[in-house]
Nucleic acid binder design. Structure first.
Lengths: 374, 374
DNA sequence: TTGTAAGCGTTATCAC
DNA sequence: GTGATAACGCTTACAA
């Protein structure tokens, strides 16, 4: 009774020696040689759901293991036209100030079998060279946590590369996006503070070229205007702690008085503002002045601050972005652009005087006017 | 006088229509057709330093621009055996607690024409599937900011994939690494505190499975032992703020007294410790107790903390890692493994009582003994 | 189920 | 300088 499985044509050790000698990498052809099957049989064994007999599969896998064979993704993607790579474009600053978003995104993509090619952007100008590389690498899709021009968005469409914009409001552009409603959140802050009796506001905003900062500012100012409150001075900061410190000093100088509340474009600036108030100016926060931040970053809830701030549902947003992108990649055709809008959650904290937790004023302008008319 | 340059065989618009119709991507062959040259001429135009005549180059580039042609990286790397991709393997936690390191690394690689394929690791177990993908994508090199086993390191060697380990001390492994001397830094902390009269220490360490945390702890304990100081109780935290709070409470309970100084495995825990001391236990920091952190993260120098801590030269380290990796990729052969060791810088801050800024005790054991003997 | 052979889109070699 | 032509390592009809 001799074995039904034929002896391998070449021993694994022998073939491995040859490969090492020739200085090349292990290919499916090597595995085929050792397993005594055709090269295409090897290929089929690595394709889930292909029709291969149990015995061939076993022989191939044994040979593959012996040779430490791993399929070459470049060769595969050349023919399949899929790379399993998703590009993530992210600005340097959002990486430093909001690492959680990138971390969540990468994780959600991994979970769906995609790997992330990371593009970090220092200046707006870098976007061109980044996009060139994005096209070169033939990524399956892109998540952009950065501002894109209409021309760029159009190029994505022309090249048929699925794009999801993460937490940037691209006004008037028909583009898939996942975002948190920054204006709504900012308006909510004003409403909550007004309900507790604040009237004179001051604002420490983020960088003017940052779309999130602009949306937040727009929300603050719009709501203040709607409610006919005194004009609020604005300091344009850089999203860092020092801007919060400098901002408070300048705003008080400009107002000639301590405002009822300072609303900040992010938490780092809010913490700078709180510290400047307490330690430089001996203003009691929140008794004499309220301070509100944005983002609920690591550290905002620590005992020394317990900042009143807003939390974006980053986890949900990352899941939504990954889902949306994967759907687009499946569909492969033209799909109606979709925008998924999330709401930030108010974190009461201890740096703002607040009324009962249910806001007296409704969060949207129409019903707010109704409330006033009544 | 008719033009010397022949008319294009096909107009760009025409060819573009065909491509769109066939639903394929633009290839160098399309460009060749439009430019009226051979495909290999097109290829040469995109290879820097190839020999092409001015006029051919111009015609090719014009056609390429008209068709929005970008070379396909997969096809290129199939033949050149270079992908221009470097994998960065980083643990989830170091991404959250030290985003600057990743940011610097990605930047330095970009500067050298490499793109970063990001692998984030939640649990140690994921390393296997990550490495499988690393081999698949045929990356040119890997920067690992995570612990690797000897077997993994050996696999890198077998597969001839250049590896640089970033800020992990892989004991007894012959592997290229760039790291900050955590033990030296920890010993320096003890020295500085002892010089200012502290004797009874307590330690809030990081997670036991984290190599950096272990090194720091080893440094603290080793120096305390060498100096014959009272035994220091150790609390094992999780690198987060809450561990700092809980740690201080438990350490005081265990000691039955307030220690002279608490040394922490990172800044988040140190800030938790400072807050717990000041706000829960009404211990004055630094008059009644000193607290020292590690890493000098964003926030450690804010007014509410002004933490005494240690700064790793992350920028220099990222540059060194990128340099080292690029050299390895050039060399392509066996090179003696290199370890580049950096020193952390002491940040005096305001949470520790310190003597004159020059430490009385020398930082290394040999000379310290000499000092005692004298 | 399995093997043969034709691509995928480049770069590299080598005549001309 | 330029154009054939042969790789690179894989997937996928198609035939057996």
């Amino acid at each position: 009774m001799r074995p039904t499985t034929p002896q391998p044509a070449v021993s694994a050790a022998q073939q491995k020696a040859i490969i090492l000698l020739e200085g090349r990498r292990v290919t499916s052809y090597d595995v085929a040689l050792v397993a005594g099957v055709s090269q295409s049989a090897v290929s089929r064994c690595f394709k889930p759901g292909a029709s291969v007999s149990k015995s061939t599969y076993a022989r191939v896998m044994k040979a593959a293991q012996a040779l430490e064979y791993i399929p070459n993704a470049a060769a595969r993607s050349l023919i399949t036209r899929r790379t399993n790579i998703v590009a993530i474009i992210v600005s340097h600053s959002s990486m430093l100030y909001n690492p959680a978003a990138l971390s969540e995104l990468s994780q959600q993509l991994n979970r769906r079998g995609k790997r992330a090619l990371l593009f970090t952007m220092q200046h707006e100008g870098e976007i061109e060279s980044i996009l060139t590389d994005v096209w070169q690498f033939q990524v399956d899709g892109v998540v952009a946590a950065s501002t894109l021009s209409a021309a760029h968005v159009e190029e994505f469409r022309r090249r048929q590369v699925p794009l999801v914009v993460f937490n940037r409001h691209l006004r008037d552009l028909d583009v898939n996006s996942v975002l948190c409603d920054q204006q709504e959140a900012a308006r909510l802050v004003v409403n909550r503070l007004v309900a507790a009796g604040h009237r004179q506001f001051a604002i420490i905003g983020g960088p003017g070229q940052n779309s999130i900062a602009r949306e937040r500012l727009r929300g603050f100012l719009g709501r203040i205007h709607e409610l006919d409150l005194p004009e609020a001075p604005v300091f344009h900061g850089a999203f860092d702690y020092a801007s919060g410190v400098a901002g408070l000093h300048e705003l008080i100088a400009r107002l000639g008085a301590v405002p009822d509340a300072v609303m900040c474009g992010n938490d780092a600036m809010a913490m700078g503002c709180v510290d400047a108030a307490r330690q430089h100016l001996h203003i009691d926060v929140p008794s004499d002045m309220s301070v509100v931040g944005f983002d609920a970053v690591e550290g905002s809830n620590w005992l020394s601050y317990e900042l009143t701030t807003l939390r974006q549902p980053l986890h949900k947003m990352a899941v939504a972005a990954a889902d949306l992108l994967c759907n687009l990649m499946e569909a492969d055709g033209e799909v109606q652009a979709e925008k998924r809008l999330f709401s930030a959650q108010f974190v009461e904290g201890e740096t703002a005087r607040l009324a009962a937790s249910t806001p007296v004023l409704a969060p949207n302008p129409a019903s707010a006017q109704a409330a006033f008319a009544a």
